[in-house]
Amino acid sequence: MIKLENIVKYFHKGSVNEVFALNDINLKLDEGDFVTVIGSNGAGKSTLLNCIAGGFFPDSGRIFIGAHDVTGWPEHQRAALIARVFQNPLLGTCPSATIEQNMALASLRGQRRGLARGVKAKDRERFREELKQLGLGLENRLLDKVGLLSGGQRQALTMLMATLVKPEVLLLDEHIAALDPKTAGQILNLTQEIVKGRKLTTLMITHNMKHAIGFGNRLLMLHQGRVLLDLRGKEKENLTVKDLLAHFYQAQGEELAMDSLLLN
């Protein structure tokens, strides 16, 4: 469960560059909600995710995750409750560490780190089993440095690492945007499997309206720091890309003549 109450966030407040990034956001996700988030550039999608993850503190409002009020918690403290996958595949893993070292780092998310071995013998078997699910053959490459993997492989590994310790909430910030279409599709399917299989409460930002409609049980559209649309259940199931675009342009106060081009 995750709850945001009256979240307000400005950037560069008081200067000429002032940006009103989040304008009184109220949001409650229930256990197991898989929410897709769309909105144009600058709508506040990433800001929202960063705010939840603790990348910065909101100017006002409160954030609750599970039973905790995490509003004042720094990023590393919130990590015990949150797993993240970034848009840039290079951000989720450590290139000069091996696959097993990366997984070991992730398997300690939110726990105290001490002088025990970083990679324990008993973990290896588990890592191998987890990696088999990816079907990329990584289970035979535990000692390879992650820097040797492709962007898609690294993002798949990051998805897996995010869920080694079950998070209260999984944040996906356009995590397939930097991948080629085929790989993106694979990672998206993997995401679906993991989120459904482990019943994770998830927020997924996407620029792809089909993905926004096709995945998850709830859809948020952000615009200028506000929640413009919050659809779930039947409403979301019956939604078409056309409906969504209509909302989108209505919000922007403009009509594009070539919608059909964008749809393909």
Binding site: A53, E75, Q77, A79, A83, F86, T93, S96, A97, Q101
Partner: peptide, 15 residues
Amino acid sequence: LATGDNPQMIRSLGV
């Protein structure tokens, strides 16, 4: 090692 390599990642893992 991870802090030198990828500070954003290791922070998001709770360090």
